Amino acid sequence: MSATRVSSGGPWEQRYGYCRAVRTGDRIVTAGCTSTVDGAVAHRGDPYAQTATAIAIGLDALAKLGAGPESVIRTRMYVVDIDAHADAVGTAHAAAFGAAPPAATMVQVARLIDPDLLVEIELEAWLGEEG
């Protein structure tokens, strides 16, 4: 089965040899999405805004491959300080997915690729038939 890939032009994609999202058949997965815009961390210190931006970047990649937010079936949220930021991250996640929430996992990690990043999110979408 062949795969279709999209890039967001993020600073680490070419450097580390990955793309933003891959579609194979009815399944689309994203790489970890952060609040990195034009090569710089956006919304330093704001976990809600970083989460909203990371999800928007992921959803943009999914849209390029034919999926909308309602097609997202799973997310994984990696948070550097879950005690301090779980509510902000979770609230931004809920706002992004509204009435069609995906299965979700939130875990704490020691740190992300840039010390100013507070959250990284992966999205997985399914375009097949319901059932």
Results as ranks from 00 to 15, higher is better:
C33I: 01
A56T: 09
G32T: 08
G128W: 11
E130F: 10
D83L: 01
P11Q: 10
I57S: 14
G131F: 12
H43F: 13
S2R: 14
S7I: 01
S7D: 04
E122S: 14
A63N: 07
G10W: 10
E122R: 10
G128P: 08
A40W: 01
R15F: 06
S71V: 00
R111A: 11
E122C: 13
G98W: 05
W12V: 10
E130K: 15
Q14E: 15
V41I: 06
A95R: 05
V119H: 00
G131A: 11
M106P: 01
A104G: 11
T75V: 12
G131K: 09
A125M: 03
L118I: 10
T4G: 03
D81R: 01
G45T: 07
T53S: 02
R23K: 14
R111Q: 07
T53F: 00
V79Y: 06
G68S: 09
T4I: 06
T75E: 12
P102D: 15
Q108G: 12
I82A: 12
T34E: 12
R44C: 07
A103S: 09
P69T: 05
A125Q: 09
I55M: 00
V72P: 04
V109C: 07
A125V: 00
V107R: 10
L118A: 10
I57A: 15
A96W: 04
V29E: 14
L65K: 08
V109A: 03
P115M: 01
G39C: 10
A92M: 11
E70D: 14
G17S: 12
V107S: 02
L112P: 07
I113T: 13
T51R: 04
A40D: 12
A54V: 07
T91I: 06
E129L: 13
G25R: 08
A84V: 11
G128D: 13
P102S: 15
P115H: 11
R5T: 10
Y16I: 11
W126R: 11
R76Y: 00
A110C: 02
K64R: 13
I82S: 00
H43C: 02
M1K: 01
P102V: 13
D26E: 15
G17E: 14
A103N: 12
V107G: 03
R76T: 09
T51C: 03
R44S: 05
W12I: 01
Q108R: 15
A84Q: 15
A103I: 13
A92Q: 13
L118V: 05
E13Q: 08
G32V: 05
A67V: 06
A104C: 12
I82P: 03
